[in-house]
Computed example of a mutant assay.
Amino acid sequence: MPKPEHPTDPDVEISASATARELRFHARPEVTVHAEAEPGGECAWGSDRTNLPDQVEPNVTYRDIRIDFRVAAALTDPTQDPSSP
């Protein structure tokens, strides 16, 4: 399972996995990830792929694939003054 580099001690972690015997793309997908921890929190995400490149090619059949994805966030207390110790 992928482990985001930061935060090192997250308050929240969400992970997901997907597998397929065969996967074929008719067009190159446009994928974006947006994860945020407000105010002043820290957030990171990462994925591991098996038998599936980072940039897939259209009309290529990928076999026995697995994708593991994880997002992690360290939260802050919104009632605490960030300048106080």
Rank of each mutant, 00 (worst) to 15 (best):
E42F: 00
R28I: 10
N51C: 01
E30Q: 11
D48C: 03
P10Q: 00
I65L: 08
N51E: 10
A37P: 04
I65W: 02
L75Y: 06
F25D: 05
D9K: 10
V56S: 03
I14C: 09
I65P: 02
E5D: 14
D54E: 15
H6C: 00
K3Q: 14
P53L: 04
H34M: 11
Q55D: 15
V60D: 05
I65Y: 03
D9W: 00
P58I: 00
K3Y: 06
A44Q: 05
R70S: 10
D77L: 08
T19S: 12
I67W: 03
P85G: 06
H6W: 11
A44W: 04
R24A: 12
I65S: 02
P78L: 10
E38M: 06
A72F: 07
I14W: 02
D77E: 10
G40I: 09
E22I: 01
T32N: 10
G46L: 02
A35M: 05
C43L: 08
D81T: 07
D81I: 01
P10N: 00
P82S: 04
P10E: 01
S47V: 02
R70L: 09
P82E: 04
L75M: 14
P7S: 09
H26A: 10
V60C: 02
S47E: 14
P7C: 05
S15Y: 10
A73W: 03
A27S: 11
P53N: 09
S15M: 07
R70P: 01
E30W: 02
T79A: 14
D77T: 07
D11P: 02
I14Y: 03
H26N: 15
G41W: 05
D77K: 09
F69Q: 02
L23Q: 02
P82C: 07
P7D: 05
W45V: 01
V71S: 10
R28S: 02
T76M: 10
H26G: 15
E13S: 15
G46W: 08
A35I: 12
R21D: 15
P85R: 11
P39N: 11
A18L: 14
P29I: 03
E30P: 00
A44K: 02
Y62G: 08
V33F: 08
A72K: 00
E36M: 13
T76Y: 11
L52A: 05
D68V: 01
F25T: 06
V31P: 00
D11Y: 06
H26C: 03
E42W: 05
V12R: 03
M1H: 14
V60G: 08
P10I: 07
H26L: 13
V60P: 06
S15E: 12
R49F: 11
P78T: 07
E42M: 05
D48E: 12
A74P: 00
D81V: 05
Y62W: 12
T32A: 13
G41E: 06
R24S: 15
P10R: 04
I14K: 03
A18P: 00
V60Y: 06
T50I: 13
D64L: 01
T50R: 15
V33W: 03
P29L: 04
P10G: 01
H26Q: 12
A16R: 10
D54Q: 12
F69S: 03
G40D: 08
E5W: 06
L23R: 02
G40M: 06
D11C: 07
Q55P: 00
A72I: 05
W45T: 01
V12D: 06
D81Q: 08
